[in-house]
């Protein structure tokens, strides 16, 4: 009995240590966003200070501080009111990410329905090629994307990010696996009852895949909400770049603003996750797969 309690105690402490380690960056970002610019500079000015020649360097000593001396909303006021640049970047993130999420869901669900309803050697080969594509890191596809975008004349426009983002093999693969779990008899019953193929797709099949659709929406949203490489390469016009690019290039004097912007930036993802946590867990559990 005593042994049992000791074991439980040890596993609790280990879990707690890991939980603290995982949560620390988030907690640090949130609490630091309520510090004044002066306090932040006192803590991290040395770390992010510009060296001679303009490049940043990292100091040996980091003064991590979790509790602000005085709670201040000045960083938020700067982000939301004083510097419209950040809001514009936030809006850039929205108008890049949302079309990708909706287009990807629409295209992937149609493709998955096709792979589910009609089988054959050609379709099996295409599906296999999807799996191969899925195994490739997306960095590999950046150069072809750049070349094709240039050829199409859409380089430096949002389309160069939205169009490749709309057709992702992972979503097709995940949805196909999910749709194959929908009993064939449901589709056959609908067919006998007089439903058209479109009606079967939208009113019989898709509602069964809500969990997968929501999981994909969240995963794709997070993926593109946090993208950095694609806008840097395909969208060189800084006025069109999303907030994620800014957050990855914090400069001296903007650290406090970056904390506040990061917190604001987290909110949509957090809301999306909280709103569909049930579906997300169900969708991933049904697939037994994790996005790579």
């Amino acid at each position: 009995m005593k042994k049992h309690y000791v074991r439980r105690g040890i596993s609790f402490i280990v879990s707690l240590v890991f939980a603290v380690l995982f949560l620390m960056p988030t907690v640090l970002t949130i609490t630091n966003s309520f510090m004044t610019e002066k306090e932040i500079n006192a803590n991290y000015g040395q770390v992010f200070g510009a060296a001679a020649g303009g490049s940043t360097y990292v100091a040996d000593k980091v003064n991590l501080k979790f509790i602000p001396d005085k709670v201040s909303f000045s960083q938020y006021i700067s982000v939301l009111i004083k510097s419209p640049d950040y809001l514009i970047k936030f809006w850039n993130s929205v108008i890049l990410t949302l079309p990708i999420v909706f287009l990807q869901l629409a295209i992937a669900s149609l493709a998955a329905y096709g792979f589910t309803r009609w089988r054959g050697k050609v379709r099996a080969a295409i599906f296999f090629s999807y799996v191969i594509l899925m195994l490739m890191p997306y960095q590999v596809t950046l150069v072809p994307n750049y070349l094709v975008s240039d050829w199409l004349g859409i380089l430096d426009t949002r389309k160069s990010i939205i169009l490749p983002g709309a057709v992702a093999p992972f979503s097709v693969f995940l949805l196909t696996k999910f749709m194959r779990r929908v009993p064939v008899s449901l589709i056959e019953a609908a067919k006998l009852d007089g439903a058209s193929e479109w009606y079967i797709f939208t009113k019989v099949c898709l509602p069964q895949c809500r969990a997968a659709l929501y999981s994909i929406a969240i995963l794709v949203f997070i993926d593109y909400w946090n993208m950095v490489e694609q806008p840097i390469i395909l969208l060189r016009d800084e006025t069109q770049q999303p907030l994620s690019v800014f957050l990855s290039q914090i400069n001296s004097g903007e650290v406090g603003i970056a904390f506040a912007a990061a917190v604001i930036y987290m909110i949509p993802t957090l809301l999306l996750f909280l709103g569909g946590e049930e579906y997300l867990v169900e969708g991933i559990a049904h697939q037994g797969s994790v996005k790579g």
Binding site: P183, S185, L186, E188, A189, L192, A195, V204
Partner: peptide
């Protein structure tokens, strides 16, 4: 199938959940 004027009951009921 829809034009044959038939109805079918399936083994697994095939109800729309």
């Amino acid at each position: 199938p829809k034009d044959r004027d038939i109805s079918m009951v399936f083994q697994n009921y095939a109800l729309y959940p």
